[in-house]
């Protein structure tokens, strides 16, 4: 049995070595078929040729297996980044089976040794295919987690509006993780700048439910504990309606319709007077009199 296996292995290895160009051509063709010209053919050929070369090496030398895995991982990473589906990626590997099978079918009809060798090769390629898929999904996960992180960083600018007044313009849906980040950043800014007023602007928040309201209330309470005052602004009519319908109590928290109103409120409370310099004729005459 072992002798037989060995001869079939050698047979298929010889086959792969002798027909390198033919198999490679067919392989590239099969791999590119579902991609519909979204990748450069010469690029694919280069990648697959490299894989083919290392695969041949790894058949005789097991040490080359790790190099082969590295190449496959790189291939799937690239595919994942370019937005290809898992099956489009897997076809790049399984296409080799198809190419070899066509060759065997054409050349040696019913040759038992060739078929046995093909089954052995097929098993090897299956393993490689599975590995490709694992690498693909790992690459996808990495992309997703990177994006989540970037989103968290993006979402929390704390802006200074005036001496002693800071503002957080919230954009997007609020969940627990984001609120946590916003809350910590806002409170830290209050400490760092010594600001007594914070305006939380929710113009960019698409919907407010009990959960979001809860998060907002917690932030306001925490700011109060530190000795700062919070104003919530940017409440759109629909949101005001939702909040009232849901029966959410904002209690004694100051809310304003727009950021401008909130700023005016905070300025007034911190003792800053805003004067319109363009005076009416009536006022000037009154002064002169």
């Amino acid at each position: 049995m072992t002798v037989q296996e060995n001869t079939s292995r050698h047979h298929i290895e010889r086959l792969l070595r002798d027909n390198e160009d033919g198999i490679l051509d067919r392989w590239v063709q099969i791999s590119n078929e579902p991609l519909l010209g979204r990748v450069n053919e010469s690029e694919t050929r280069r990648e697959l040729h490299e894989i083919y070369r290392v695969l041949l090496q790894s058949l005789s030398r097991p040490e080359a297996a790790s190099e082969l895995r590295g190449l496959l991982a790189e291939l799937s990473r690239n595919r994942a980044r370019q937005g290809f589906t898992p099956s489009e990626t897997a076809v790049s590997v399984y296409g080799l089976k198809e190419a070899v099978y066509e060759l065997i079918g054409a050349e040696q009809e019913g040759d038992e040794q060739a078929l046995r060798g093909f089954i052995w090769l097929s098993r090897t390629i299956d393993g490689l295919g599975l590995y490709t898929f694992e690498a693909y999904s790992a690459a996808r996960d990495k992309i997703i987690s990177d994006q989540t992180e970037q989103l968290l960083e993006l979402s929390t600018p704390v802006v200074k509006l005036w001496e002693g007044i800071v503002s957080v313009p919230l954009v997007g849906t609020l969940d627990s993780a984001r609120t946590q980040v916003v809350m910590e950043k806002l409170l830290q800014t209050l400490v760092d700048t010594g600001s007594e007023y914070a305006v939380i602007d929710i113009t960019g928040v698409p919907a407010v439910d009990t959960q979001v309201a809860q998060h907002l209330l917690k932030t306001v309470m925490a700011a109060r504990l530190m000795g700062a005052h919070c104003v919530i602004s940017g409440i759109r009519p629909q949101i005001a309606h939702t909040i009232v319908t849901l029966g959410i109590e904002f209690g004694d928290i100051v809310t304003k319709a727009t950021l401008a109103d909130a700023l005016a409120y905070a300025l007034r409370k911190s003792g800053v007077e805003v004067v319109n310099k363009r005076r009416t004729r009536l006022a000037i005459r009154a002064e002169e009199a």
Binding site: M183, L187, V191, K218, M221, A222, A223, L225, M226, G227
Partner: peptide, 15 residues
């Protein structure tokens, strides 16, 4: 009057 509460402390108390 309580002064100088750290953000982490304030969050903990609220939680």
């Amino acid at each position: 009057i309580v002064v100088g509460m750290r953000p982490a402390v304030a969050i903990t108390l609220v939680e």
